[in-house]
Simulated scan of single mutants.
Amino acid sequence: MTDQSVNHPGRKIMPHVGKRRARPAEDTPAVRREEILAAAATVFAECGYAETEMQAVADRCGVAKGTIYLYFPSKEKLFLATVDRAMTRLRESVRSAYEPVADPLERLEVAIRAYLEFFRDHRHFAELLIIERAVYRDRKTPTYLEHRKAHRGEWEKVYADLIEAGRMRDIPVNDILRFVSDLVYGTMFTNHFAGHEYTPAEQAHILVDILFHGLLSPSERRKRSRMG
């Protein structure tokens, strides 16, 4: 008797062969790629770059290791795609929050709040930025800054329109962009490492209040203005 068949008088019983599970209709290559990147983000953030193995990502995703290599030929390609996905999700999350807001000044506060909320809710994405900087120090422009540069146009227009309308001081738009971007970037990492007693909404309100009104009282500003 073998595992190929079992013989009985008058009939032949074949071994049971399980049916292959049908792939869900939504299990497309794009969906599978997204699942792999989501799993990789968690594994890289938990284990670090050096300690992450492709098998661990496959196990987290519930696929064979070979499937990972079908989409990403190396760990480096997988990691960089994971960081890129994180930044794309950040941009989409922030944009969906501020797009319904008509007033550009209110938009800024909503965008800052959404940015801080995103990293509060996805702490592992902040870890990916740290890992990228540590592992790929020779990269001229980290992924975060690549995304910031690629999508700065919409905020350039917002600030330029505010200046033209007389609602914002006539200072170089590039200076405004750099200052605001660095401010929220630094706040995000301070929150990540040390935590904060305020909610993202409260932090955004404080940042915007100081940004719009400054630290000095009106009388002190007038005094300094007269001093030249």
Rank of each mutant, 00 (worst) to 15 (best):
Thr52Phe: 05
Ala56Leu: 12
Asp138Asn: 11
Gln203Val: 12
Arg167His: 08
Arg20Tyr: 01
Leu80Thr: 12
Met188Tyr: 03
Val63His: 02
Arg221Phe: 03
Ser219Glu: 15
Glu164Met: 09
Val57Gly: 01
His147Met: 10
Met54Gln: 09
Gln4Lys: 13
Arg32Cys: 01
Glu53Val: 07
Asp175Cys: 06
Glu154Cys: 07
Arg167Gly: 05
Cys61Asp: 02
Phe212Gly: 00
Val63Pro: 01
Asp161Asn: 14
Arg222Ile: 05
Asp182Trp: 08
Gln203Leu: 15
Gln203Pro: 00
Gly228Thr: 05
Ile131Val: 13
Leu90Asn: 07
Thr143His: 02
Arg32Ile: 08
Ala40Lys: 03
Met1Ser: 12
Arg139His: 13
Tyr115Lys: 02
Asn174Thr: 11
Ala25Thr: 11
His122Leu: 03
Gly10Leu: 02
Phe72Cys: 05
Ala165Ile: 08
Arg133Met: 10
Leu177Asp: 08
Ala150His: 08
His213Ser: 11
Arg95Trp: 10
Phe44Thr: 05
Arg11Asn: 05
Arg178Asp: 14
Ile68Asp: 00
His205Trp: 09
Ile210Phe: 14
Lys75Arg: 13
Glu154Ala: 12
Asp84Asn: 12
Arg133Phe: 03
Met14Asn: 08
Tyr198Asp: 14
Val158Met: 14
Thr88Ser: 11
Tyr69Gln: 06
Phe44Ala: 05
Phe125Gln: 06
His124Trp: 07
Leu70His: 14
Tyr144Ile: 11
Pro142Phe: 02
Arg32Trp: 01
Thr141Met: 15
Gly62Ala: 09
Asp182His: 10
Glu99Thr: 15
Ser74Ile: 03
Asp59Arg: 09
Gly228His: 06
Gly18Asp: 14
Phe179Gln: 11
Tyr144Trp: 13
Lys65Ala: 09
Arg107Thr: 03
Ile210Lys: 13
Ser5Phe: 13
Leu145Ala: 12
Gly228Arg: 10
Ala102Cys: 03
Arg178Gly: 06
Asp175Pro: 00
Ser219Thr: 14
Glu51Gly: 12
Gly153Glu: 14
Ser181Met: 06
His147Ser: 08
Lys19Ile: 10
Arg32Met: 10
Met54Val: 14
Tyr159Val: 13
Gly153Gln: 10
Arg224Pro: 00
Ala150Asp: 15
His8Tyr: 12
Thr141Glu: 13
Asp3Pro: 00
Met168Asn: 01
Phe44Ser: 02
Phe125Asn: 09
Lys149Gln: 13
Phe118Tyr: 15
Val63Phe: 07
Asp175Gly: 09
His213Ile: 01
Gly195Lys: 04
Ala41Thr: 01
His196Arg: 06
Thr52His: 07
Phe118Cys: 00
Tyr71Ser: 08
Ala41Glu: 08
Thr199Ile: 06
Arg169Phe: 09
Gly214Tyr: 05
His213Asn: 15
Ala97Pro: 04
Ala134Met: 12
Asp103Phe: 04
Ser96Cys: 10
Glu51Leu: 11
Lys157Thr: 15
Ile13Cys: 02
Val83Met: 02
Ala25Gln: 09
Arg20Gln: 09
Met168Thr: 04
Ala204Ile: 02
Lys223Asn: 11
Arg133Pro: 02
